[in-house]
Simulated assay, not measured.
Amino acid sequence: MSHSTDCRAKLYMLSDLYRNIQLFRFSAESGEIYIFAGEELQIIIPQNGRWRFVDET
């Protein structure tokens, strides 16, 4: 799955779960996409498309 397709799929998934997308950012330096949804849900999608949740605990 391409980087943009994977990102789009995650945005649809979050909106289907009734999460507000608070921040969507593409880092040109790292090629990563950052998505902040709700108050605690954070997702990073690197160029390889293997997304992960950010665990800040």
Rank of each mutant, 00 (worst) to 15 (best):
Q42S: 11
N48V: 03
R19Q: 15
E40V: 07
Q42Y: 12
G31L: 01
W51R: 01
I43D: 00
S15N: 11
A28C: 05
D16L: 13
S15W: 11
N20K: 13
R25P: 05
S27T: 08
L23I: 15
D6L: 01
S30T: 14
V54H: 10
R52H: 08
Y34H: 15
F53Y: 06
V54W: 09
R19T: 04
A28K: 04
W51I: 01
Q42G: 11
G38S: 10
T5C: 03
T57K: 11
Y18E: 10
P46T: 04
I45Q: 02
I44N: 04
L17D: 14
L41Q: 05
S27F: 14
Q42H: 10
S30H: 06
R52P: 02
N20L: 14
E32K: 13
S30Q: 03
H3L: 00
R25M: 10
D55Y: 13
Q42T: 09
D55W: 13
I21T: 10
E40W: 05
N20F: 12
I33F: 12
F36I: 08
I21Q: 11
S4P: 06
S30M: 09
F36G: 05
P46G: 05
Q47Y: 00
E56F: 11
A37V: 03
V54K: 13
I44E: 03
G49D: 02
G31S: 04
I33Q: 04
S30G: 09
Q47P: 00
L11G: 00
K10W: 02
S30A: 08
G49P: 07
R50L: 12
F53N: 07
Y12K: 04
E39L: 11
E32V: 10
A9M: 01
L11P: 00
I33C: 09
Y12D: 08
L23S: 15
E40L: 07
I35H: 08
F53K: 06
I21V: 15
Q42P: 03
F26E: 01
A37M: 07
N48M: 03
D55K: 13
K10Q: 03
W51F: 10
R8M: 01
C7Y: 05
P46A: 03
I43W: 02
S27D: 09
I21N: 12
T5A: 07
P46S: 06
A37P: 05
Y18M: 10
